[in-house]
Amino acid sequence: MEKFEKLTGIAAPMPLVNIDTDMIIPKVFLKTIKRSGLGVNLFDEMRYDRQGNENPDFVLNKPQYRDTQILVAGDNFGCGSSREHAPWAIADFGIKCVISTSFADIFYNNCFKNGILPIVMPQEVVDVLMKDAEKGSNARMVVDLEAQTVTTSDGESFPFEVDAFKKHCLLEGLDDIGLTMNNVKDIDAFEGKMAQERPWV
């Protein structure tokens, strides 16, 4: 997995609440057996008409937001299904950080597996960041994972919380399975114990 350290990039505002995984990547694109290539269909039904023409009003179609790397979104971003195609599409588009007041649990976890940093901020901070994102491509936001801060284009800085272990894995780009395999003896021991205590499992 790619490491996430410090990101300086364009932030796009998506104030809509409850942006669900069907909006992020509609089911027609779940038929792939690959992880790559989904960026072009990110937010497909909002981004294109039925003929595949771009909707010029959609934020990521506007010239100033084409190279967006940070999304500032409304409450409960990523609710709905467990499809990892959602973070795959986000990452494939080039977005590496999503900021909201809250995220759906499975989506939140899926982000970390794909080098994306989801940041939870209180409403009043999201409001400030949303305003900053509305400035377009001249405004670069800075997300510093090590320092756990988001800084607006005006230099106003806000701290955020992130689980220490998740932070470590993201900073180092660590592979979860490899990490777990370091504890394979504990898994063996657990299975041995369970074979005695709960043999019906």
């Binding site: 992880r35 709905g80 299904s81 467990s82 499809r83 990892e84 973070p87 499975i106 976890n109 899926n110 597996k113 794909n114 979860d176 399975i177 777990t180 395999m181 394979v184 898994i187 299975e191």
Partner: peptide, 30 residues
């Protein structure tokens, strides 16, 4: 790898949906 795994909670089982990376993790490590 499906959010409606919550269904199985009806049995008093701790059941939840996971993403594909976690599917791979469970396949490999249980």
């Amino acid at each position: 790898g499906d959010s409606h795994t919550a269904t199985h909670g009806a049995f008093g089982a701790l059941a939840h949906g996971i993403g594909t990376s976690e599917v791979e993790h469970v396949l490999a490590t249980q």
